[in-house]
């Protein structure tokens, strides 16, 4: 096989990415540094705006809370699933997978029905006489968090189930024989072993929640913008192309920064555990 032929097979994919992903990215990035008074003028302007900082803060907060909640709910669920008989485990895995493969619009739409002013939850609470007037649940930051948790929890669970399936039950038994109660076993033996998987899940969920568009658009409305909905609004509604590009670059930068940190930390954990 000649040298040229070897690379021949790589050409379509390489060109495709360079021309259709990296070049367009450069094309939106360049004006953000050339059209201001100095290269960082647009960025400092953006980061000094109270409104824009609020959007960044909201985006990060929603992503962090979503990640934490999915870990807290996903971990016990994953442990529970991994401890079922094989047949049950497969049934449960399919139940978890179904939402992952279902359209995000459908999944968020379900929460519009539940959280709306005349929605399922308000009707239920009023029916039980717990509240007298409907609560404002939809079009709030909390609604975005609920929708994001609903969207990403199955991904966290599948990631953690994989890891929990690989745990050696004798290790937990060894801790129990040495005097550890079940909760101590969970804290001191199971959690540290699952830490790399928890971080992997956290990376997936954080990246997803931080950049998601559909959930904040449907459940947050126009007043609770996050960075992704801000990009769309700036570009398509207001026609501020450069501003949209600035937000886009900041979004990429922030998500890469957080993911880089999480990955670096995962790497440290992996070195500890996988020294074979």
């Amino acid at each position: 096989m000649s040298k040229a032929n070897r690379f021949f097979l790589l050409i379509p994919a390489t060109l495709g990415i360079l021309v259709f992903a990296l070049f367009p990215l450069l094309q939106i990035a360049i004006p953000t540094v050339t059209s201001g008074a100095n290269p960082i003028a647009l960025y400092s302007q953006f980061l000094q705006s109270h409104y824009d900082l609020q959007v960044i803060f909201r985006t990060l907060t929603i992503a962090v809370i979503t990640t934490l909640v999915t870990v807290l709910l996903g971990l016990p669920t994953a442990l529970w699933i991994s401890r079922q008989t094989t047949a049950w485990r497969q049934v449960l895995s399919v139940i978890i997978l179904f939402p992952i493969l279902t359209n995000a619009v459908v999944r968020n739409f379900a929460w519009i029905i539940i959280l709306g002013k005349n929605g399922v939850l308000n009707n239920l609470l009023q029916g039980l006489h717990l509240i007298s007037a409907p609560l404002t649940l939809l079009y709030t930051d909390s609604a975005i968090v609920i929708g994001s948790v609903y969207l990403f929890l199955p991904i966290m669970i599948t990631t953690l189930v994989d890891s929990a399936n690989g745990l050696n039950p004798e290790i937990e038994e060894a801790a129990a024989v040495l005097g550890s109660r079940p909760f101590t076993v969970l804290r001191e033996i199971i959690l540290p072993q699952m830490a790399p998987a928890i971080l992997t899940g956290a990376i997936l969920v954080f990246a997803g929640a931080m950049t998601a568009y559909t959930t904040p658009q449907l459940l947050g409305g126009n007043r609770h913008l996050v960075m992704s909905t801000l990009i769309y609004q700036q570009a398509m509604t207001l026609g501020n192309w450069t501003t949209a590009s600035v937000v886009a670059i900041v979004l990429i930068g922030l998500s890469l920064l957080v993911l880089g940190l999480l990955r670096w930390y995962t790497g440290r954990l992996d070195r500890r555990v996988q020294h074979a």
Binding site: N168, E170, E173, V177, P192
Partner: peptide, 19 residues
């Protein structure tokens, strides 16, 4: 319960705590 018996056990897989 197992955690109060004050015994020790060596397992087939050794079951050392990997972390």
């Amino acid at each position: 319960p197992v955690y109060k018996r004050g015994l020790s056990m060596v397992f087939q897989s050794y079951a050392l705590f990997p972390h």
